[in-house]
Amino acid sequence: MDRLVFLLATGLARGLVVALFALSLVIVWRAARLVNFAQAAVATVAVFAAFAVTGATGSFWAGLAAALLTGAAVNAAVERGLVRRVPQGSPLPGMIVAIGLVMVLQSALGIAFGPRHRPMAAPFDERPFVVGGVPLLSPYDLFVLTVALALVGLLAWLFNGTTLGLQLRASAAAPEVSRLLGVRVPRMVTLGWALSGAVAALAALLLVPTELGLNAHSADLLFVHAFTVAVLGGLDSPTGALIGGVLVGVLVSLVTGYLGAGVAPLAVLALLTLVLLVRPAGIFAAAQVRAA
Protein backbone atom coordinates (compact mmCIF):
# COMPACT_ATOMS: atom_id res chain seq x y z
CA MET A 1 0.00 0.00 0.00
CA ASP A 2 2.78 2.38 1.02
CA ARG A 3 4.51 1.53 -2.20
CA LEU A 4 1.43 2.30 -4.27
CA VAL A 5 1.00 5.66 -2.57
CA PHE A 6 4.65 6.49 -3.14
CA LEU A 7 4.49 5.55 -6.82
CA LEU A 8 1.28 7.51 -7.33
CA ALA A 9 2.84 10.59 -5.75
CA THR A 10 5.99 10.23 -7.87
CA GLY A 11 3.89 9.74 -10.99
CA LEU A 12 1.79 12.79 -10.20
CA ALA A 13 4.86 15.01 -9.87
CA ARG A 14 6.34 13.72 -13.09
CA GLY A 15 3.02 13.75 -14.92
CA LEU A 16 2.41 17.41 -14.18
CA VAL A 17 5.55 18.40 -16.06
CA VAL A 18 4.51 16.23 -18.98
CA ALA A 19 1.05 17.78 -18.81
CA LEU A 20 2.54 21.27 -19.01
CA PHE A 21 4.50 20.33 -22.09
CA ALA A 22 1.43 18.71 -23.62
CA LEU A 23 -0.40 21.92 -22.91
CA SER A 24 2.11 23.77 -25.05
CA LEU A 25 1.36 21.37 -27.91
CA VAL A 26 -2.35 22.01 -27.42
CA ILE A 27 -1.77 25.75 -27.67
CA VAL A 28 0.02 25.47 -31.03
CA TRP A 29 -2.65 23.11 -32.24
CA ARG A 30 -5.32 25.60 -31.25
CA ALA A 31 -3.50 28.43 -32.96
CA ALA A 32 -2.32 26.73 -36.12
CA ARG A 33 -3.80 23.23 -36.42
CA LEU A 34 -0.30 21.81 -36.37
CA VAL A 35 1.69 19.53 -34.09
CA ASN A 36 5.00 21.22 -33.52
CA PHE A 37 7.53 18.41 -33.65
CA ALA A 38 10.28 20.93 -32.91
CA GLN A 39 8.79 21.95 -29.56
CA ALA A 40 11.28 19.92 -27.51
CA ALA A 41 14.27 21.39 -29.34
CA VAL A 42 12.94 24.94 -28.92
CA ALA A 43 12.33 24.30 -25.23
CA THR A 44 15.88 22.99 -24.83
CA VAL A 45 17.28 26.14 -26.43
CA ALA A 46 15.26 28.15 -23.90
CA VAL A 47 16.59 26.09 -20.98
CA PHE A 48 20.14 26.73 -22.19
CA ALA A 49 19.33 30.43 -22.08
CA ALA A 50 18.01 30.01 -18.56
CA PHE A 51 21.14 28.10 -17.60
CA ALA A 52 23.33 30.93 -18.87
CA VAL A 53 21.31 33.62 -17.13
CA THR A 54 21.07 31.72 -13.85
CA GLY A 55 24.81 31.10 -14.06
CA ALA A 56 25.48 34.81 -14.58
CA THR A 57 23.03 36.23 -12.06
CA GLY A 58 22.73 33.41 -9.56
CA SER A 59 18.98 33.74 -9.59
CA PHE A 60 16.68 30.92 -10.66
CA TRP A 61 13.91 33.44 -11.27
CA ALA A 62 15.98 35.47 -13.70
CA GLY A 63 16.71 32.22 -15.51
CA LEU A 64 13.02 31.37 -15.55
CA ALA A 65 12.22 34.72 -17.11
CA ALA A 66 14.95 34.19 -19.69
CA ALA A 67 13.57 30.75 -20.54
CA LEU A 68 10.04 32.06 -21.01
CA LEU A 69 11.23 34.94 -23.19
CA THR A 70 13.55 32.76 -25.25
CA GLY A 71 10.92 30.07 -25.75
CA ALA A 72 8.40 32.65 -26.87
CA ALA A 73 10.87 34.47 -29.11
CA VAL A 74 12.23 31.33 -30.80
CA ASN A 75 8.79 29.93 -31.46
CA ALA A 76 7.56 33.28 -32.79
CA ALA A 77 10.60 33.42 -35.06
CA VAL A 78 9.95 29.85 -36.19
CA GLU A 79 6.39 30.75 -37.06
CA ARG A 80 7.29 33.97 -38.86
CA GLY A 81 10.40 32.66 -40.55
CA LEU A 82 9.50 29.10 -41.45
CA VAL A 83 6.00 27.89 -40.76
CA ARG A 84 4.40 30.82 -42.55
CA ARG A 85 6.29 29.95 -45.71
CA VAL A 86 5.25 26.33 -45.66
CA PRO A 87 2.81 25.36 -48.42
CA GLN A 88 -0.61 25.21 -46.81
CA GLY A 89 -3.26 22.59 -47.16
CA SER A 90 -1.42 19.42 -46.25
CA PRO A 91 0.08 18.83 -42.80
CA LEU A 92 3.04 17.07 -44.40
CA PRO A 93 5.39 19.97 -45.29
CA GLY A 94 4.86 21.57 -41.90
CA MET A 95 5.88 18.40 -40.11
CA ILE A 96 8.91 17.92 -42.33
CA VAL A 97 10.10 21.47 -41.71
CA ALA A 98 9.65 20.96 -37.98
CA ILE A 99 11.74 17.80 -38.11
CA GLY A 100 14.42 19.68 -40.01
CA LEU A 101 14.33 22.32 -37.31
CA VAL A 102 14.82 19.69 -34.59
CA MET A 103 17.93 18.46 -36.35
CA VAL A 104 19.32 21.96 -36.84
CA LEU A 105 18.69 23.14 -33.27
CA GLN A 106 19.91 20.00 -31.53
CA SER A 107 23.06 19.67 -33.57
CA ALA A 108 23.77 23.39 -33.15
CA LEU A 109 23.42 23.02 -29.39
CA GLY A 110 25.68 19.97 -29.56
CA ILE A 111 28.33 21.91 -31.46
CA ALA A 112 28.10 24.94 -29.19
CA PHE A 113 27.97 23.20 -25.82
CA GLY A 114 29.34 19.69 -26.34
CA PRO A 115 27.81 16.48 -25.09
CA ARG A 116 28.15 17.15 -21.35
CA HIS A 117 25.20 17.09 -19.03
CA ARG A 118 25.19 20.33 -17.05
CA PRO A 119 23.73 19.97 -13.57
CA MET A 120 20.94 22.42 -12.74
CA ALA A 121 19.72 23.04 -9.21
CA ALA A 122 16.04 23.20 -8.36
CA PRO A 123 14.77 26.43 -6.80
CA PHE A 124 13.06 24.56 -3.98
CA ASP A 125 13.89 21.73 -1.69
CA GLU A 126 13.44 18.43 -3.47
CA ARG A 127 13.20 16.41 -0.27
CA PRO A 128 9.65 15.10 0.04
CA PHE A 129 7.40 15.43 3.04
CA VAL A 130 7.15 12.08 4.72
CA VAL A 131 3.62 11.18 5.73
CA GLY A 132 3.17 8.01 7.72
CA GLY A 133 6.57 6.75 6.68
CA VAL A 134 5.90 7.25 2.97
CA PRO A 135 7.77 10.00 1.15
CA LEU A 136 5.20 12.03 -0.78
CA LEU A 137 5.51 15.28 -2.70
CA SER A 138 8.43 17.64 -2.15
CA PRO A 139 8.17 21.42 -2.01
CA TYR A 140 9.50 21.40 -5.56
CA ASP A 141 6.72 19.05 -6.67
CA LEU A 142 4.19 21.34 -5.00
CA PHE A 143 5.71 24.25 -6.87
CA VAL A 144 5.29 22.34 -10.15
CA LEU A 145 1.74 21.42 -9.18
CA THR A 146 0.86 25.02 -8.41
CA VAL A 147 2.41 26.29 -11.62
CA ALA A 148 0.63 23.67 -13.72
CA LEU A 149 -2.79 24.28 -12.21
CA ALA A 150 -2.38 28.05 -12.34
CA LEU A 151 -1.34 27.85 -15.96
CA VAL A 152 -4.28 25.69 -16.96
CA GLY A 153 -6.60 28.12 -15.21
CA LEU A 154 -4.91 31.08 -16.83
CA LEU A 155 -5.11 29.56 -20.28
CA ALA A 156 -8.74 28.56 -19.82
CA TRP A 157 -9.48 32.14 -18.84
CA LEU A 158 -7.41 33.50 -21.70
CA PHE A 159 -9.04 31.34 -24.34
CA ASN A 160 -12.59 31.40 -23.04
CA GLY A 161 -12.91 34.58 -21.06
CA THR A 162 -11.07 37.26 -23.00
CA THR A 163 -11.46 38.95 -26.37
CA LEU A 164 -7.89 38.02 -27.18
CA GLY A 165 -8.70 34.37 -26.54
CA LEU A 166 -11.75 34.59 -28.74
CA GLN A 167 -9.64 36.09 -31.50
CA LEU A 168 -7.04 33.38 -31.05
CA ARG A 169 -9.60 30.66 -31.33
CA ALA A 170 -11.38 32.31 -34.21
CA SER A 171 -8.15 32.75 -36.20
CA ALA A 172 -7.40 29.08 -35.97
CA ALA A 173 -10.91 27.84 -36.59
CA ALA A 174 -11.93 30.14 -39.42
CA PRO A 175 -9.10 32.35 -40.65
CA GLU A 176 -10.94 33.89 -43.61
CA VAL A 177 -14.06 34.80 -41.66
CA SER A 178 -11.96 36.15 -38.82
CA ARG A 179 -10.03 38.35 -41.19
CA LEU A 180 -13.27 39.69 -42.61
CA LEU A 181 -14.38 40.51 -39.10
CA GLY A 182 -11.22 42.51 -38.48
CA VAL A 183 -9.12 40.01 -36.54
CA ARG A 184 -5.43 40.32 -37.36
CA VAL A 185 -5.07 36.64 -38.02
CA PRO A 186 -1.31 36.46 -38.67
CA ARG A 187 -0.61 38.30 -35.45
CA MET A 188 -2.87 35.95 -33.53
CA VAL A 189 -1.15 32.89 -34.94
CA THR A 190 2.28 34.24 -34.00
CA LEU A 191 1.00 35.04 -30.54
CA GLY A 192 -0.24 31.47 -30.16
CA TRP A 193 3.17 30.11 -31.14
CA ALA A 194 4.97 32.45 -28.75
CA LEU A 195 2.67 31.50 -25.89
CA SER A 196 3.23 27.83 -26.62
CA GLY A 197 6.99 28.31 -26.75
CA ALA A 198 6.96 29.93 -23.33
CA VAL A 199 4.90 27.13 -21.80
CA ALA A 200 7.12 24.46 -23.36
CA ALA A 201 10.23 26.25 -22.04
CA LEU A 202 8.69 26.34 -18.59
CA ALA A 203 7.95 22.61 -18.67
CA ALA A 204 11.47 21.73 -19.80
CA LEU A 205 12.97 24.05 -17.18
CA LEU A 206 10.98 22.29 -14.48
CA LEU A 207 12.06 18.89 -15.77
CA VAL A 208 15.82 19.35 -16.08
CA PRO A 209 16.64 19.75 -12.35
CA THR A 210 15.06 16.35 -11.70
CA GLU A 211 17.22 14.65 -14.33
CA LEU A 212 20.86 14.13 -15.09
CA GLY A 213 21.40 17.66 -16.30
CA LEU A 214 21.08 19.91 -19.29
CA ASN A 215 22.03 18.52 -22.67
CA ALA A 216 20.85 19.02 -26.25
CA HIS A 217 18.61 15.98 -25.93
CA SER A 218 17.22 16.70 -22.46
CA ALA A 219 13.63 17.14 -23.60
CA ASP A 220 13.39 14.38 -26.22
CA LEU A 221 11.58 11.86 -24.09
CA LEU A 222 9.44 14.64 -22.66
CA PHE A 223 8.17 15.33 -26.16
CA VAL A 224 7.28 11.70 -26.81
CA HIS A 225 5.40 11.48 -23.54
CA ALA A 226 3.73 14.84 -24.06
CA PHE A 227 2.66 13.85 -27.55
CA THR A 228 1.09 10.72 -26.09
CA VAL A 229 -0.62 12.89 -23.52
CA ALA A 230 -1.86 15.35 -26.11
CA VAL A 231 -3.30 12.54 -28.17
CA LEU A 232 -4.78 10.92 -25.09
CA GLY A 233 -6.49 14.09 -24.01
CA GLY A 234 -7.25 15.35 -27.49
CA LEU A 235 -5.06 17.96 -29.12
CA ASP A 236 -7.72 20.55 -28.49
CA SER A 237 -8.36 20.17 -24.82
CA PRO A 238 -6.24 21.83 -22.09
CA THR A 239 -8.13 19.91 -19.42
CA GLY A 240 -7.50 16.74 -21.39
CA ALA A 241 -3.78 17.54 -21.45
CA LEU A 242 -3.72 17.99 -17.70
CA ILE A 243 -5.58 14.78 -16.93
CA GLY A 244 -3.74 12.87 -19.65
CA GLY A 245 -0.41 14.10 -18.29
CA VAL A 246 -1.15 12.82 -14.82
CA LEU A 247 -2.38 9.52 -16.29
CA VAL A 248 0.79 9.00 -18.30
CA GLY A 249 3.01 10.07 -15.40
CA VAL A 250 1.30 7.64 -13.05
CA LEU A 251 1.33 4.87 -15.65
CA VAL A 252 5.09 5.25 -16.20
CA SER A 253 5.72 5.37 -12.47
CA LEU A 254 3.59 2.31 -11.70
CA VAL A 255 4.99 0.26 -14.56
CA THR A 256 8.56 1.18 -13.62
CA GLY A 257 7.90 0.42 -9.99
CA TYR A 258 6.10 -2.88 -10.43
CA LEU A 259 7.32 -4.27 -13.76
CA GLY A 260 10.72 -2.66 -14.31
CA ALA A 261 12.16 0.39 -16.03
CA GLY A 262 12.45 -1.33 -19.40
CA VAL A 263 8.73 -1.95 -19.69
CA ALA A 264 7.73 1.71 -19.30
CA PRO A 265 8.39 2.81 -22.93
CA LEU A 266 6.39 -0.17 -24.15
CA ALA A 267 3.52 0.72 -21.85
CA VAL A 268 3.48 4.25 -23.23
CA LEU A 269 3.50 2.93 -26.80
CA ALA A 270 0.71 0.48 -25.99
CA LEU A 271 -1.38 3.23 -24.42
CA LEU A 272 -0.85 5.50 -27.41
CA THR A 273 -1.72 2.77 -29.89
CA LEU A 274 -4.80 1.79 -27.96
CA VAL A 275 -6.13 5.32 -27.70
CA LEU A 276 -5.39 6.09 -31.34
CA LEU A 277 -7.14 2.99 -32.54
CA VAL A 278 -10.14 3.22 -30.25
CA ARG A 279 -10.57 6.96 -30.20
CA PRO A 280 -8.28 8.58 -32.74
CA ALA A 281 -9.11 12.11 -31.70
CA GLY A 282 -8.48 11.62 -28.00
CA ILE A 283 -10.64 10.84 -25.04
CA PHE A 284 -11.59 14.36 -24.10
CA ALA A 285 -12.15 15.96 -27.46
CA ALA A 286 -15.67 16.69 -28.56
CA ALA A 287 -16.24 15.60 -32.13
CA GLN A 288 -17.25 18.93 -33.57
CA VAL A 289 -14.41 20.94 -32.13
CA ARG A 290 -11.76 19.18 -34.19
CA ALA A 291 -13.52 19.36 -37.48
CA ALA A 292 -12.23 22.87 -38.19
Binding site: V35, F37, L92, L221, F227, T228, A264, P265
Partner: peptide, 19 residues
Protein backbone atom coordinates in the same frame (compact mmCIF):
# COMPACT_ATOMS: atom_id res chain seq x y z
CA UNK B 1 -5.12 8.19 -38.58
CA UNK B 2 -4.05 11.37 -40.23
CA UNK B 3 -0.79 13.30 -40.47
CA UNK B 4 0.44 14.18 -37.01
CA UNK B 5 -1.14 11.18 -35.33
CA UNK B 6 0.51 8.63 -37.58
CA UNK B 7 3.83 10.48 -37.38
CA UNK B 8 3.59 10.55 -33.59
CA UNK B 9 2.69 6.88 -33.35
CA UNK B 10 5.61 5.85 -35.52
CA UNK B 11 7.88 8.18 -33.51
CA UNK B 12 6.84 6.51 -30.26
CA UNK B 13 7.52 3.17 -31.92
CA UNK B 14 11.11 4.11 -32.72
CA UNK B 15 11.66 5.31 -29.18
CA UNK B 16 10.27 2.05 -27.78
CA UNK B 17 12.42 -0.23 -29.95
CA UNK B 18 15.37 -0.57 -27.52
CA UNK B 19 12.96 -1.38 -24.70
Amino acid sequence: LRGPYLAGLTLAMVVALPA
